[in-house]
Amino acid sequence: MRGKVYWVFLIPSAMVLIVFFLFPLLIMLYYSFLQRGIYGGFEPIENLKEYIFSFAWLKNYIRVFDSLYIPIYLRSIYIAILTTIICLFIGYPVAYFIALKVKPENKILYLFLIIVPLWTSFLIRTYAWILILRDEGLINLFLLKIGLINKPLPLLYNEFSVLLGLIYGELPFMILPIYASLEKIDISLIEASKDLGADEFRTFKRVILPLTLPGIIVGVTIVFIPTLGSFIVSDLLGGAKSILVGNLIQNQFIVARDKPFGSAIAFVLSSFVLVLLYIYRKFWGGKIEVL
């Protein structure tokens, strides 16, 4: 009797996954095979058999690979990779510092400082960057005042501000998993390495880095994926001047009223991410279980 009851406790999480993840995904897949109606919505299918055999349902997927959109995908991937790399190079030292150099009683304070901005909506924090970066913003006013520049630096509405916004938003998600894996390292391993004559750098390379690889992998994954699909930052901080794949999808749903095409792009993007994750698992599969 007792053993049989436990599956009941799986219901809530299974329900959440089915209702909020699987179900919408299936609807999206279905949409992506339809055609856009004139006023949004969908073109009704008159002859299902003909529709299937004429491969009309593939139209949206063929359009996804139209040469018009390829530069947008490449740009999005480039920006996502750049953001991830910079986050890693800033995030690792910060995590290292908090995990190994800070006094144990102060760690909580440093972690708190990293987490606290997440309590405010990302949208509001992005707007705050507009106030900081714009021509009459904090930075430019300060630099003008001390006489370092005589006309405002163009800090906002370009590639720099988009990258800055993305890095700013994703950095905590790089720091936290790396911190978690650094924290788990047995200090005696580091001491052993030093006792055996390895210098600081060698210890880092041969002991610490391999042990924190799982954290790095998790950090890279959870920074790269949202960055690839983001659209708010390029809209607000980029002045909506260049499109990322996230904007492309959003435009299909809101402006062009082409839900089927939007769904198709979203599906191709998700599949791309899944393939990446699969490759990850294949190479570093065993190490991801840490988190």
Partner: peptide
């Protein structure tokens, strides 16, 4: 006025401009 299917063409142009 609503442009019906021409919206699709405009969207293509707009995407080209933006990208």
């Amino acid at each position: 006025q609503d442009l019906g299917t021409v919206t699709k063409l405009l969207d293509r142009f707009w995407t080209e401009i933006k990208s």
